[in-house]
Structure formats: C-alpha cells, structure tokens
C-alpha cells in the first residue's frame, strides 16, 4: 500500500513541509510533512506527547514553527497569530470548544463578529445562524436557549458552525469526539462528512481509532514528533495504525515480517 505518496503541492489546499518546533531541549515536531486537499478528511493520530497538539497550534497560528514552510493554496504563508490563520481561511475548533455557556446559540455563533456593532442586527444574525445550522443538518430545536442547556454533541455542532462563519477552506478539529456519547459521536461524524461534501479540507486530531476509520480519507501518524506513516483509511487495518502509533512495529522482528509480507504498511520512517 500504501501510504499515498506525498501529493503535489498544487493539489493540496494546505501543505506543511519540514515543519520543526523546539521547546527548549525538547524537539516537539521534527520534519513534519502534511497535506490536506479540498474535500478531504485527514486524521492526525498519535500517542500522548506525539506532537498532535503542537501541530494544531502551528496550524492555527498559536505557535510559529522554527523551520519549514506552510503552503496555503500553493503559496507560502506565515501564520503569526490565530487571527491571521482565521483570516486566511483556516478555522480551528478547540477541544474545550470555547463557548460561553451563559450566552444563547446565536450569540455564541457570532461572538466577536456581531453584525452592526452599535445596534446589533439580531434578525439577520438569527437568520444566518439557521442557514449555517441547516447546512450542517444540525439538530438544534431553538436558538434562544443558553449553550449550557445543550448536549455535548449539540455544543460541538455549535462550535463547528461558528468556525464556518468566515467561510474557511480548512477546518481543524481537535478531538471532536473525545467527550461524547455514542449517538452524539455519530452526529459529529455525520457533520464531518458534511464538511467534506461542502468541499472543505478537514484536519481531525483524534485518539479514537474507530472514529478515524469511520470518516477519514487518510490517516497521518505522528510518533515522538515525527511523521510515522500516512495511510489510506480505506484499506489499512486498525492494528497497523496502532502499531505505527505505538512503534510496536519498530523492531527487528516486525521489520522482517513486514519485508516478507510485501509492503503492507510501508512506512515513512525517517
């Protein structure tokens, strides 16, 4: 198999090449490559400390990388701040959602970018809110309740809908299903598929192998801050991904077995 060869930069809406990030003596990210095309869901998986969160923060503009280039629509860009990333068209949904529980759904959707700052246009904002939520086929019965009254899945929906307000091209989801029950997880996975249908590039950080295999087109594995393989989600087994995550395959026996069994899980081990 494999692993899809690194695509041409023109094909991808967002590409990382050789990204490095150092915190003191710790190399959090080393030589990371990642490509996301429009209408594609790329899952980034890895163990604790593999560098997933750091990668999200690099993409969302919180951290600037020490080395490497970020290409957005084929052009090299600098993501100096979250606002810069957002303005460029990279939206981030953080793991803790960052919603104000005391405000209602439409206030949360438009927080910080309300229409008509000196005489809020509630009607237009409510209309837009419904349009957004309809696009996502979201199941939220009324916009008048404070977010505190919504379920976990509904909150995730609100957070994702909010990230879509600026018409982004790439959306980063940090652990979107981590705190959700079975039904709510399914709702969010539906939502991610709808984002893909709408032509967005989706980067999804996840721990949950089932969810990853359910929606991702490709799975990028990080291990100890390095690329440890990119797999096509359609024909890779969970075991192979887990092996890449844990490095279980990274020993003499496994390498020998791998050579014998023809390239089943070709690796991009540096």
């Amino acid at each position: 198999m494999t692993a899809s060869a690194p695509r041409a930069a023109t094909d991808a809406v967002l590409s990382l090449r050789g990204i490095c990030k150092q915190f003191g003596a710790v190399a959090a990210l080393t030589d990371i490559d990642l490509d996301v095309a429009a209408g594609e869901v790329v899952a980034v998986v890895g163990d604790n400390g593999a560098g997933k969160s750091t990668l999200v923060k690099v993409l969302s503009g919180v951290y600037t990388p020490d080395a490497g280039t970020i290409l957005f629509r084929g052009e090299e860009v600098r993501l100096d701040s979250p606002a810069a990333a957002h303005d460029m068209g990279i939206a981030t949904v953080y793991q803790d959602l960052a919603l104000c529980e005391n405000l209602d759904v439409k206030a949360n959707l438009f927080l910080g970018q309300e229409l008509r700052p000196w005489m809020l246009d509630d009607v237009a904002m409510e209309k837009d809110s419904w349009r957004l939520l309809r696009e996502l086929s979201a199941k939220i019965p009324t916009l008048d309740v404070p977010v505190a009254a919504l379920s976990g899945g509904q909150r995730q929906t609100v957070a994702i809908a909010r990230s879509l307000l600026g018409n982004p091209e790439v959306i980063l989801l940090d652990e979107p299903t981590a705190a959700l029950g079975v039904a709510q997880t399914a709702e969010v996975l539906d939502l991610i598929e709808r984002l893909r249908e709408n032509g967005l590039g989706v980067v999804m950080i996840s721990h949950n192998m089932e969810d990853v295999r359910a929606v991702a087109d490709r799975v990028a594995v990080l291990r100890l801050g390095r690329n440890n393989g990119v797999f096509d989600a359609a024909d890779v087994s969970s075991e192979d991904v887990v092996a890449a995550i844990t490095g279980a395959a990274d020993n003499v026996v496994a390498r020998r077995a791998a050579r014998r069994a023809a390239p089943r899980t070709e690796k991009e081990v540096p």
């Binding site: 979250p82 953080y94 960052a98 104000c100 405000l103 927080l111 910080g112 970018q113 809020l120």
Partner: peptide, 19 residues
C-alpha cells in the same frame, strides 16, 4: 455589551473569539 457578557461567562472563550 455582548462582549461584557461573554467575558463574564467564559473569558478564555471570549479571548479566542477575538475579543
């Protein structure tokens, strides 16, 4: 005014929303 409510509800969320 909305930003006052937002900050009182969740200051971190308000900060990330660009307030």
């Amino acid at each position: 005014g909305r930003s006052i409510y937002a900050v009182g509800g969740n200051a971190e969320a308000a900060r990330r929303a660009g307030i």
